[in-house]
Design a protein around this nucleic acid. Sequence first.
DNA 1: GCAAAAGTGTTAAGCTTACACCCATGA
DNA 2: TCATGGGTGTAAGCTTAACACTTTTGC
Lengths: 244, 244
Amino acid sequence: MYSYKYPHPAVTTDSVIFGFDGSSINILLIERGIEPFKGTWALPGGFLNLDETVEEGAIRELREETNINDVYLEQFHVFSAPNRDPRERVLTVAFFALVSKNDFEIIAGDDANEAQWFEWNHLPPLAFDHAEIVRMAKEKLQDKLRISPIAFKLLGREFKMDEVQRIYELIHEKRYDRRNFLRKMESSGFLKKTEEESICRCLMPPSVLEDKSSPKVFYVYSFDEDAFNKANASKEWRKYPFDF
Amino acid sequence: MYSYKYPHPAVTTDSVIFGFDGSSINILLIERGIEPFKGTWALPGGFLNLDETVEEGAIRELREETNINDVYLEQFHVFSAPNRDPRERVLTVAFFALVSKNDFEIIAGDDANEAQWFEWNHLPPLAFDHAEIVRMAKEKLQDKLRISPIAFKLLGREFKMDEVQRIYELIHEKRYDRRNFLRKMESSGFLKKTEEESICRCLMPPSVLEDKSSPKVFYVYSFDEDAFNKANASKEWRKYPFDF
DNA sequence: GCAAAAGTGTTAAGCTTACACCCATGA
DNA sequence: TCATGGGTGTAAGCTTAACACTTTTGC
C-alpha cells in the first residue's frame, strides 16, 4: 500500500492512434479484457509508473498493448472530470499518434482481448469518456496539420502526392484541386521528388518490374525533415506552407 | 492518511498569467512562503482537490493566491519529469491566462509572501521547472494568437487599435505597418468601431471632457464576441483573419 | 513650438482559385 | 475500348507589403 498525507488522483495516459492506409484514416482501439467496461472498445493506455514521464508512459503502454513502437506522439489535453472513471479518481493525459498503418503488425497484449483498426468515422461505442477524447484529438490534429508538416508522419518514407492530398482532404473534410495542391505542396520546398529511375525500384511490385516493355513512371516524393527543421529554426520561410 | 494499492503522483496546476498594461506584457508571480524554494518567485498554482477538474483547480488557486477571478484560462501542457519537485513525484498541468492587467488588484494570499507583476522578458529566477513552463507558454500563446482572437482578452472592453497592434508586435516580436494592420484587423469583420460621440464619454478623464474647446476624438473599438462565435461555428470566414 | 501619435490611399508583387485536355494504365 | 488516374499551364481575383504626408495632442 502507498500512503499520502493528502489524497492523490490516479494518472493514466490514453492515446488516439491515427493510421493511414492509403485511402482512409483509422483509429486503433483495444477491447478491454478487464473491468470496468470489460469487452468494450477503448483507447490504448494505462496507469503511469512513478519513474517515467507521461510521454514515456504513453510509449510504454503502446508497446505493451498494441505492439506499436517508435511513433510520433504528442500530448494534447488532460481529461479530469472527477467521476470519469467509476473505480476512483483518475485523471488522464491524452496523446495523439500518427502512423503509416501498414508499418505495424498489431498484436493485442496485456489486459486487452484484441486490438483493431476502425475507420475513424465509424467507431464502435467507447469506454469511459474516450469518445470525447477522440473528438478533441481530431480537432487538435486539424489545427496542427495547418501549421506543421505532420501529414507525412501518416505516410511511409516515400509516397505519391495524391496520398498526401487524400490526407488533407480527409482531415479538413474538403476537396482540393489536384494541380493547385501539387503546386503549393512543391513550393513549400521541403519535398524531394525522387529520381524517376529509382521510382520503379521503390514502389512497383516485382512482377511489374520484370516487365520492361513500358516505363511505369510515377513521381514519388519524400519529405526532407532536415531541411524543414533547419528552415524552421531560422524562421525564414513562408508563414504557412502547409495551410490548405 | 490516504492509501492506495498502487503509487499515485501528486497533481498540481500552475498558471502563467499574461497581463497587458497598454505598453508591455507582464507575468504574475508569487514569492513562495513555504519550502521548498521558500522566498523564490514561482508561478501561482497548487495541489488539485479530488472533487474538482484541473480547470476548476487552476481557477481556485488563482483566486486564493492572487485575488484574480473570472479570466480566460487554457491548459497547454503537462510537465512530468519524475524529479521536478524535490518533495515527491509531482506532475503539473500548466495553464495560461490572459488578463487586462489594470482590471485586477493583486493581493497575495495563502502560502505566498507576495504577488507581483514582472515584465515578461525580465523575470527573476524561478522555482522548480517554472522557467521552462513560461517558455512553452509563450510559444503556445504565439501559436494560438495566429488562429484565434485571443489578443482581445488582454484588453478591456474598449480599446484603441494601436494597443491591439502593440500586443501582436510584442508576442510575435515583429513590427507591423500601422495602416496595413488597421486594414486587416478591420476586415476581419469582428471589430466594432465605437461611435465617435460616445468615445469622449468612455475614455477621456473628466477634466478633459469638461474642456469643450477641442473634439479629442479617437477611434475606439470593441470585439464582437457573439459575431465571432457565430461565424466560427458556421466556419464561413476567411481562413486566418488574425494571422499577422 | 516641438515631438509624438493618429488619421488616411495607392501600387506592385505574390498567392490562391478556377478551369480542360492529353496520355498511360489496367480492367 | 473504356474508365481511371496522372501529368501539365494560364488567367482573374484577392491578399499582402511597402510606402509619406497631414493633423492633433501633450509637453
